[in-house]
């Protein structure tokens, strides 16, 4: 099945990312566009899930502001997390309620994308029972939280590449106390790849795992007019 991806080369504010997702979500629900996956980095932000608990925030709103970190309550599932430059976020806006729904389920597929991306860089990742996401011996490297509206997904998964992990020190990530957070950089040190190839890996594995024939666009380049309108809000 055909799908589109859009890669963003500059970090996007959480609010802008949310606005873009909501426009694409609506267009997808109305079948005006195919499944579309966004690949982007966020400006520093702490987000709580729909039922995320405030006690997993270790700073006050004022302290976050002083640190240059935005704070959002998002409508996604999952608990609290941190996003910032150097971390890829993938937001697949996909119709999941049809006859092509994967037998393993969407959560499994997102984890699989992260695990296969890790394998591309020689890192063994694994799942942990009752602790969703992708894990390595050094800690959790990919976090998941999504929402379905009319069985179209939005929000998705973050994958730590070379981001400053100190932001995670201001929260209890996913509400899991005492669990370390890892990135490709903490594992591979000087051998850590650049952002672009890791983004390519994530999209390659998205296409294979979710069985989508991906037509790729990036923000700076040409894209179908109906997509450009949704992305750029022209």
């Amino acid at each position: 099945m055909k799908a589109w991806s859009v890669s963003f080369n500059q970090p996007v504010s959480y609010q802008d990312g949310l606005d873009i997702q909501r426009r694409i979500l609506k267009a997808r629900q109305e079948d005006r566009i195919p499944d579309t996956v966004l690949l982007l980095q966020h400006q520093p932000v702490v987000t709580l899930g729909n039922r995320g608990r405030d006690n997993y925030l270790l700073k006050t709103k004022e302290e976050y502001t002083a640190m240059g970190i935005d704070l959002f309550r998002a409508e996604r599932g999952g608990d609290v997390t941190f996003h910032g430059p150097g971390q890829w976020v993938i937001y697949p806006i996909m119709h999941l309620g049809g006859s092509d729904a994967g037998s393993h389920g969407y959560l499994f597929n997102l984890e699989e994308i992260a695990l296969r991306t890790l394998a591309d860089y020689g890192i063994e990742g694994f799942r942990r029972e009752c602790k969703s996401g992708a894990w390595t011996d050094a800690g959790k490297i990919a976090a998941i939280g999504f929402r379905l509206k009319k069985w179209v997904s939005f929000h998705g998964m973050s994958f730590n590449v070379s981001n400053d992990l100190t932001g995670f020190g201001t929260i209890v990530p996913c509400g899991l106390e005492g669990e370390p957070v890892a990135s490709l950089k903490t594992i591979l040190a000087d051998a850590c790849p650049a952002m672009e190839p890791v983004g390519d890996s994530l999209l390659n594995h998205f296409a294979k795992v979710c069985k989508r024939d991906l037509e790729r666009f990036d923000l700076a380049g040409e894209m179908p007019a109906e997509l450009a309108e949704l992305i750029r809000d022209e």
Partner: peptide
């Protein structure tokens, strides 16, 4: 209309 929300550990879905 959206009437209810069901949530698993990582997912939230609207019920109509």
């Amino acid at each position: 209309d959206e009437v209810a929300v069901v949530e698993s550990v990582k997912a939230a879905a609207d019920v109509y």
